[in-house]
Simulated scan of single mutants.
Amino acid sequence: MVLDRKVKRQSDIVKLIQTGKFKTQREIVKALKEIGHKENLSTISRDLKELNIDGKGKEYYDFTDSKRKEIERERLTKLIEDSHAYNSSLSTLWLRANPDYATVLATSLERYLAKQGFEVGTMVGPTGTILLGVDKDRSADVLKELISLGIRNERTHGTTATKKTKKRKNPARKEN
């Protein structure tokens, strides 16, 4: 019974710390009393230490860095449980887009290419760089599909492709 109360109390402390801002242990005790706990400041102080929650050098009570990392790892583990890893030989294609719409473009490309039967993963950088990870055996087909959509292929096999430009007349040069 005592252990059940402790587990419930510590669970409630974690929830309070995650959702509230407490400057002192007394504020935490008060919030716990409001939800039915009757423990004193000494008990709550021991609980905070066991839970790796402190207020030293911080504006509010929060988890220690090591506890925060542990919580993040647990959260990621739960998210990853429904994920799948693919082990294939990948090729990468790089695109440069306007940073304002790069994420939308990457998402749209990924969906479009999936409908075309390609398995593609995308990553977007803050400067508008889009990385497409594609199966090495299908990368040429994906590139052809991207070109058919109007994406310029400015680099092929390590050499820069030439762009057609109109010759401009030099206004300083007089024609005879």
Rank of each mutant, 00 (worst) to 15 (best):
K163D: 04
T159R: 06
E27A: 11
L32M: 10
Y112L: 13
T159D: 04
G57K: 09
E59C: 02
M123P: 09
K163L: 10
I151V: 15
T92L: 15
E154R: 15
A31V: 03
E27I: 05
Y86T: 06
G117C: 00
S148H: 08
V7R: 09
I35M: 13
K6N: 05
A85C: 12
T129W: 02
P99E: 09
I130S: 06
I28P: 02
G150F: 01
M1S: 15
G57N: 07
Y86N: 10
L149V: 09
V14T: 09
A114M: 11
S89K: 12
L48T: 11
K169H: 01
T19Y: 05
L41I: 04
R155S: 14
K33A: 09
T103P: 05
F118G: 00
S88M: 10
D65T: 04
K56P: 03
S11Y: 08
T122S: 13
I53E: 04
T122H: 07
G55L: 01
A161M: 11
T156Y: 11
A172W: 11
I53Q: 02
I28Y: 08
A172Y: 09
N170R: 03
Q18N: 15
G55R: 08
R173Y: 13
H37R: 10
K67N: 00
D135G: 03
N153W: 08
T43V: 13
K174H: 07
K144D: 15
L76S: 04
K144V: 04
G121E: 14
I28G: 03
V134L: 01
E175A: 08
G117L: 03
L41A: 04
E50V: 05
Q10T: 05
T156E: 13
K49F: 02
K78Y: 08
L132P: 01
A172L: 12
L143V: 12
S11M: 07
A31D: 07
V104D: 07
K78H: 10
T129E: 14
T160V: 15
I130Y: 05
K174I: 01
L105V: 15
T162R: 11
P171M: 00
N153F: 03
A102P: 08
T165C: 07
A102N: 09
D54G: 11
S66F: 12
Q116W: 04
G128Y: 00
R73D: 14
L32I: 06
H84A: 06
R173A: 12
V2E: 13
L132A: 01
D100C: 01
R9A: 06
R111N: 12
K30D: 14
I130L: 05
G158F: 06
R46M: 02
K169T: 12
T24E: 08
K167V: 12
Y61K: 01
K15M: 10
A140V: 11
D82M: 11
K67C: 01
S11P: 00
T162Y: 08
W94S: 15
E70K: 11
L79C: 08
K167P: 02
G20Y: 13
K163F: 05
V124M: 03
R168P: 01
K69C: 02
R5V: 02
K38W: 13
D100E: 15
A31Y: 08
D54E: 13
T159P: 06
Y60Q: 10
T122F: 00
K69R: 14
T103I: 09
E145S: 05
K78A: 14
N170E: 03
L109E: 08
T24Q: 04
I44G: 07
R68S: 00
D141C: 05
N98C: 14
G57L: 09
I151G: 04
L132K: 03
E81Q: 13
K115I: 05
T107F: 11
